[in-house]
Amino acid sequence: MSEIYYTLIIKGVNRTSPPICAFLDTGSAFNVIRYDLPDGLPTVGLAKDYNSQGTKDVELIGYEESQTLPTVMFESITIGGLTITDPRFTSFSLAKIGDEAIIGYPLMQYLEMVIDFRKGKEGAKIYFEN
């Protein structure tokens, strides 16, 4: 099976992130982002809202048990040329993960993404319905 990544850009309160390589996880109900961004700066520096108490119980790949993780919300995110400001989709669980970010299926559905896994020279492709 192919692994699919897509470029994500986050607009924060004081600055905009560098391009982030986001793993598209059709089995995840949550969006997760790493503690540090590709530029080495902490992710919370971009947050519009930060909840250190943790509001989501998330089961991450490679972990046997779910964990309660803090959440961050951003001004907006841009993926596939589309900018999203809806708080339901600009909120991410903050975690120490190998990928820069993980995009769950609710955001993919909101964006009307279609993932074509048929084998070809370029591997899997992503389309947007609109």
Rank of each mutant, 00 (worst) to 15 (best):
M1F: 04
P38L: 09
N31Q: 13
P106M: 09
R88V: 07
I102K: 14
Y110H: 10
E100W: 02
F23A: 15
L37C: 11
S28L: 00
L94A: 06
L107N: 12
P106H: 08
F30D: 11
I33W: 00
A95K: 06
S28R: 03
T55Y: 00
F128L: 15
F92R: 13
L24T: 12
V13H: 01
F89G: 07
N14T: 13
F74M: 09
K56T: 14
T90I: 05
P19C: 11
R34D: 15
I126W: 01
G104K: 09
E64Y: 11
T85R: 05
I77L: 10
R118A: 15
M73N: 05
Y50M: 03
T78E: 14
L107K: 09
T68P: 00
I103K: 11
F92V: 15
E122P: 00
L111D: 00
G120A: 02
T7V: 11
P70V: 13
E3L: 09
I84S: 08
I97M: 02
L41K: 15
E75D: 15
E64L: 14
T16N: 02
S52N: 06
S91E: 15
S66N: 11
K96I: 06
L24R: 10
S91D: 09
A124R: 04
Q67N: 10
G123D: 04
D57H: 12
K96S: 12
D36M: 06
S52M: 01
L8H: 07
P87H: 07
D116R: 10
E3N: 07
L41Q: 15
I103G: 11
N51W: 02
F117K: 09
I9W: 01
D49V: 08
P42S: 13
Y50D: 04
I61Y: 07
I126M: 07
T83V: 03
L94V: 05
T26W: 00
T26V: 07
L46W: 09
F23G: 14
E3P: 01
P18C: 10
I10H: 03
T78H: 04
